[in-house]
């Protein structure tokens, strides 16, 4: 079963080390194969080096797809992570990247 969803990057500095680590730590608990795609580029969502290399800016919509028996659950958990209030990153958004 493959499930896809659209997510908005909430972190002002994009998917940097901290959120990337959280994503990988989360996804590794699941069997599904997981990918992010931006434009036509595909990134393995369980690989931190790929995540921090994504050109994903704050506010950007990215596609996420999970395929496997636990795909539904993966998508839900990841959505939670993307809507989590991150104090540190919230503050970063006030400083702004330039």
């Amino acid at each position: 079963m493959e499930i896809t969803c659209k997510l908005v990057v909430p972190w002002q500095y994009g998917v940097h080390m901290r959120p990337a680590t959280k994503i990988v730590k989360l996804l590794r608990n699941f069997d599904s194969e997981t990918y992010f795609s931006i434009h036509s580029e595909k990134y393995n969502a369980k690989k931190i080096l790929e995540l921090i290399s994504m050109e994903a800016y704050c506010g950007q919509k990215i596609k996420f797809s999970a395929s496997g028996s636990d795909a539904q659950e993966v998508v839900e958990k990841l959505k939670e992570l993307f809507s989590e209030e991150d104090d540190d990153d919230d503050e970063e958004s006030q400083i702004g990247a330039y």
Binding site: M17, R18, A20, T21, K22, V24, K25, D88
Partner: peptide, 11 residues
């Protein structure tokens, strides 16, 4: 905040 960065380094 800090601890998770080092976790990322380890990954």
């Amino acid at each position: 905040d800090i601890s998770i960065i080092f976790c990322g380094h380890r990954l």
